[in-house]
Computed example of a mutant assay.
Amino acid sequence: MRTSPTGRQLRLGVELRKLRELAGLTATQAGQLLGVKQNQISNTEAGRIGVSAERVRTLAYHYKCGDPALVQALSDMTTDRRRGWWEQYRELLPRPLLDLAELEHHARSLCASTTARVPGLLQTREYALEVFRQAVTALSPPDIEQRLSFRIKRQAILYREDNPTPYEAIVHEAALRMKVGGATVTRRQLQHLLDMSDRDHITLRAITFDVGAYPGSGQSIYYAYGPVPALDTVQLDQSHGVGFLDAETELRKYRMLFERINAVALSPEQTRDLVHKLIHEL
């Protein structure tokens, strides 16, 4: 039995529980349908024990799930049991950071909206180093180095030769103008944004001060698109750490929020012009 299931294993269990509850079945009733004890259903839903693709399809049949795309996506979640690169950090970094890397690795596409910092996947090493140095809770040099190397490794999904992850960043002008690490570091960071936005799978858009207040302006939001909408995930930076949302009502809320954010953002071409202007002002 697993003592520390990953975020992906937990999510699979959560989705199976949602299907069971939609079917109006208790864990005991579900176990009777499959000829297993109630605690096996409960442990599966808690991610404590693994489940095969065949068992997922059997559960979906008994739960009368009429969404074949969702059933297939859930079945696919059972097949990749390789240990990801992030596992080497399991005893070194908070578990939510590992779950974030796992989420990014499997995401169909990603969208980030930030107001005070350049998104982590687009940060240069120098910029990220300064961000970690300014953490509210002071980090030791070894802790900073671990977090820095972890962040850089997360960025690998944008550099894959085959199927790099589509990525959209919506960055407020305040984050672009903030001199994190001084003028030189900021200039290199802005140039890096331009270089990354040249890639076909990366879209960079800015929101200017002229827009004023807009929906979602008070927080950084990260939206990971799954193989089907029901498996999307929202990640928020919270005062107590990294938080994840996957309830359908929350997903609908943040999809709508991103639509409204996109409506006030500059086009990619206008954003590049703004970034060039900011570089020349430094």
Rank of each mutant, 00 (worst) to 15 (best):
L74F: 11
T186K: 04
V242Y: 04
A107V: 02
R199S: 11
Q238W: 10
S52C: 05
I279E: 05
A156P: 02
D143G: 15
Y127G: 00
V71C: 10
D76Y: 07
R151F: 01
W85K: 05
T137G: 12
R17L: 07
G241V: 07
D210R: 07
M77T: 11
L97Y: 12
L231C: 01
T114I: 06
Y89H: 10
S149T: 03
E126D: 14
P68D: 08
K277D: 15
N43M: 13
L194D: 09
L103M: 09
A135T: 14
A265Q: 03
G24D: 10
D143H: 13
Y61T: 14
Q123M: 08
G13M: 08
L92G: 04
Q72L: 13
A265F: 02
L110G: 02
I170M: 04
A101Q: 02
Q134S: 08
L257Q: 11
A169I: 08
E168P: 02
V118Q: 01
G120F: 00
E54A: 13
V171C: 02
L190E: 04
A213G: 12
A46G: 11
S149G: 03
G7V: 08
S220N: 12
L103Q: 03
N262L: 10
I157T: 03
A213T: 10
G66S: 12
A60V: 07
D195L: 09
F209V: 07
Q270T: 05
E102C: 06
G31H: 02
L251R: 03
M178T: 13
G182W: 00
I170L: 08
S52G: 07
G243M: 10
R57T: 14
R95T: 12
T137Y: 15
G218H: 09
Q88R: 10
T137V: 15
R188L: 06
A69F: 13
A230N: 05
V36W: 09
F132L: 15
L10D: 06
S109R: 14
S197E: 04
Q29S: 06
Q88E: 15
G241Y: 08
T271N: 08
G84W: 04
L176R: 00
A156E: 13
M196H: 01
T79C: 11
T137S: 14
R260M: 13
T184E: 15
M256N: 12
K64L: 05
P68T: 09
F209H: 13
T186R: 05
R154G: 00
V211Q: 03
M196P: 00
R160H: 06
V275D: 02
A265P: 02
A128F: 03
Q29R: 11
R108D: 09
W85S: 04
A230S: 12
E45F: 05
V211F: 00
R260V: 14
L103G: 00
V51M: 07
T44V: 05
L122T: 03
A73K: 04
R90Y: 08
I144D: 01
A206T: 03
T78G: 05
L97S: 12
R20W: 01
H276M: 09
T184H: 15
T233Y: 00
Q88D: 14
L92N: 06
T115C: 11
P164Q: 06
S140Y: 09
L278V: 10
I279Q: 03
L34T: 05
E104V: 03
